[in-house]
Structures are given as C-alpha cells and as structure tokens.
Design a protein around this nucleic acid. Structure first.
Lengths: 247, 247
DNA sequence: CCTTTTATTCACTCGCTTGTTAGTTAATAT
DNA sequence: ATATTAACTAACAAGCGAGTGAATAAAAGG
C-alpha cells in the first residue's frame, strides 16, 4: 500500500517510541496523566483510521495499517475497540454528532429568523453552508471525514444503516422546513429533491479530483467555497421547478 | 458473509448463450464448443463478480467468493484474469462502453433534432434518460452495475481514474451541448452544474434504500422512473439559476 | 510503600487469500 | 486416431489479518 502515508502532513509530530529529533526527546513522551494519555491515544487512532478508511474503505484497511501510522502495536487497537467495524463506527460517529447538531441548530435558528416564511433556498443554505463550513475550516480531519461519509452513503452493505442512525433527525428537520416553504408541493417531490441534494453533497465531499481533470483545472475538487456559492440556489431552483410543475 | 447469495435470483435466467430456460436441466452443462464455453464462463464470472463487488466493494470480495457463486474452482479466476483488480476493471468496462456509446449517440441525435437551439433540459434528458432506461430495462445485471458505478465514483483511491477513462468523452459531449444551450454562462458554472448532476445520479444508482426509510415508503430507491420524471427538469432549473445569476 | 490498575507489547493461533505447479479431462486439428 | 491445445481442478506454499492471553512496566491509590 504505497509509501508511508500520514494523516498529519507535519513530520514533527512524532508518535510512539520515536525518541525523536532535536530538543526534548524524552520529554515528548507522556508526562500526562493516564486518563489524558488514553484519550490522546484513542484520538490519534481515530484520526489515522479516519484517514485510511476514507481512502481505502472499511475492507481496504487493516488494523496493522492503522497501528503503524499511530506508532503502536496493532493489538492495542483491539484493546480499545471491540473490532474493526466498531473502530469504523467510532470514527464515523465522532464527527457525525457534531455536524448533526450544528445543522440542527442552524435549521432551528433559520426558522426563527424567517418568521412564518421560510424559503427553500434559505433552508438549504442553513443545511448546506453549516456543513460545508466545517469541512472548509475544520482542517484535514474534517476533510477526511467528508470523504468517508461519501463512501458510506454509497455503500449498500451497511451504509444506509449508519446514515440513518446519525442523520435522520436533521434530514427530517430539513424536510419539515422545505414542506413549510413549499406548502403545495407533493411530499414525494420534496423527498426526491432531497435525494438530489444529498447526492450532490456526497460527490462534493468525496473530492475524487475528477472535476479537476474534466474541467481542465477550471474547477477544483477542494474548492468547497465554490460549492457553497452555488449549491443552495441551484437546488432551490430545482425544487421550485418540480414542485410547481406537477407532471 | 451471509447466506448463499446469487446474482440471478431466478434459476432460469442464465446469461450469455441462453440454452433455454426451464426444460433440459442436465443439458445445461457444457455441450458447446470450447470458444463458447470460455465465453460463457467468463460472462458468468463477470456477472457474479459484478454482483459481489457492487455490494461489498473491491476489497470486500475474495476470488473464492466469486468462484463459489460461479460454481468453479477459485484458481480458474486466476486463469482468466491477471488478478482481482483486473477482474474488477473488466466488470466495469463491460457495461461502461455500452452506456457510454448509447449516451453519446443520444446526445448526437438530440443535437441534430434540436437544430441550432438545444436546451439544457433537452440535453439532460438525452444524457440521463438514456442511461436510466438501461437500468430500468436491462435486468439485474445493469442494476448491479449501477450500484458499482456509484461506489467507484466515490472511491478516491482509483475511482476517478476509472471514471475518467470511460466517461470523459460522453461527459465532455454533454458539457459541449450545455455550453451551446447556455452561451452566456461561465464555464465554471457549467462544470459545477454537471458535478451536481453526476452526484445525484450516483446516489440514485447506489440504491441504498435510504430514501425508502426516510420517506416512510413514499419514495423507493428502486423507482428509477420517478427519477427520470424529475431529474432533468430539476437540474435544468438549477443550471439556469446559477448561470443567470452570476454571483 | 506496596498493591492494584491500566497502558502497552509479545508470542502465538487460526482461518483465510492469493498464487503456483502439476495434473486431468475433453475438444480441435491434422 | 492421435497429438495438441484448452478448460478446468487438486494439492500445496506462503503469508497475512484479526484476535487472544499472558507478560511487563509504569502510574494510581490507599
């Protein structure tokens, strides 16, 4: 599996028994309490697993791969996590709850701000921008998590299950707002519209780089700002179209 | 890996040189020439591999799994295919060329029919409906291939590469038509619009069943007709929106 | 200070995956 | 008909990947 890939590009952040370059080699080593140590190690495991899973998928990663990147023995992963799948679930859950809560709050706020008159575009902005901001400003970890989400969302095996358990509440909250914005629209159409939205969001998060080559560099996979600037209004227009024009 | 799953639920529907369903069971076994035999076996391998890969991804499937479903010794897969990845590539390529050609032709036909005045919706209909029809009428194999495509499209590892090599021509053809339909639109916006379209199409093909549960049965993952009835006009409205409103 | 926890590694096991080499059977060609 | 080629299987070799249980070392706690 290629050269030695690390989630944190920075080489200075040594792990495990790297007695290390320069200054305070020995001091780098755990001076902290055990609880902190535990938390820190687990966090690192989640980070590295997140990176690898996002690139190769659940089955494409071995516990040893993860362990190597963290700089610990691979059985330590078994010590902290039941098995590979629960490691994966933990990785996914860690940020899923954050994004879920944030979006939920954003939707609530928007509804209040909009008074009795929410718009489709407004609701979509609340839903999408809040999320995109996380990936834009959240650092590498969030970007990796995004790609992982895209993978999960398109995995028939257990993907829907994971998505359901984490995102149903927010999504239903969005749907609820959309219904208020489009009172005469058939429920079916609203759900299908959401389906399109989520699909578009997922390819975005996947950042496969395909759009880069395709467009000859005009668009960049990493350019979430460009998405943010277009997606809500694009999708809102779509909603209005299929809701006003009942075939 | 669960009970014994088979791609073709029906015992009767065998692929390739269909020796005729029902009747002559014993005769089902190779009576044919070697060339036919070879072709038939390979076809079966591709079918079963397609089914499994679409469900579990490249790394989630072993050659033995495939062999078991085909009913041959697992080393036979090594005999016909270099390795697992080239089996995967063969699976993908088999139908990719079909869908690619069909859509290319549909776009050509549409452009001729539209005279000098192609519309966004028209171009999208040509692009999308042609494809969706394959999945609707093509049988289980095509449905499985669709799910596989969705997986590939969201796989950063080698996904973009595969998509590029098979679909760049059709997609650029579509883009070309869209440019003609939107002569004043910035290229960037058109590419981003396509990005949204492809994302929406991919979740559709993935058929994870998520929309079913989410909508409480109002929408069904399998209902490609519903997508066909909405997607082109939904997306066309989006294109017009972001192209006319340059931020 | 000494006992108990807790983090971490070590030495293995077991099953599975890939791939190789050699063999068997049946069609093809001469 | 017979020699050859092609489809296919059997029988290993080698290695990996998940996971277990005992060992070690250091920190917590009484």
């Amino acid at each position: 599996m290629e050269p030695v890939e690390r989630a944190s590009p920075r080489g200075g952040d040594r792990r495990g028994s790297d007695l290390g370059p320069g200054t305070d080699q020995a001091k780098v080593r755990r001076r902290s309490t055990k609880a902190e140590q535990r938390a820190e190690t687990i966090e690192q495991m989640l980070d590295e697993a997140e990176y690898l899973f996002s690139k190769h998928g659940l089955h494409g990663v071995t516990l040893k791969d993860v362990a190597k990147r963290v700089g610990v023995h691979h059985t330590l992963l078994n010590y902290y996590f039941e098995d590979k799948k629960s490691l994966f679930d933990a990785v996914f859950a860690r940020r899923a709850v954050v994004t879920s809560e944030r979006r939920m709050k954003a939707l609530d706020d928007y509804e209040k701000a909009a008074g009795g008159k929410p718009t489709v575009e407004g609701a979509l902005h609340a839903f999408l921008d809040t999320d995109l901001d996380l990936y834009i400003h959240g650092g590498e970890g969030w970007k990796n998590y995004g790609a992982l989400g895209a993978l999960v969302a398109n995995t028939p095996e257990w993907g829907a299950e994971l998505m359901d358990s984490h995102f149903d509440p927010v999504v239903l909250r969005l749907i609820d707002l959309l219904k208020k914005a489009l009172p005469d629209c058939a429920e079916r159409d609203i759900f299908w519209g959401y389906h399109f939205v989520t699909g578009a969001l997922m390819v975005t998060l996947a950042r496969t780089g395909r759009i880069d080559k395709l467009s000859g560099g005009v668009c960049k996979s990493e350019d979430f700002e460009a998405i943010k600037a277009r997606m809500a209004s694009f999708m809102a227009a779509g909603f209005l179209q299929i809701c006003n024009k009942p075939a």
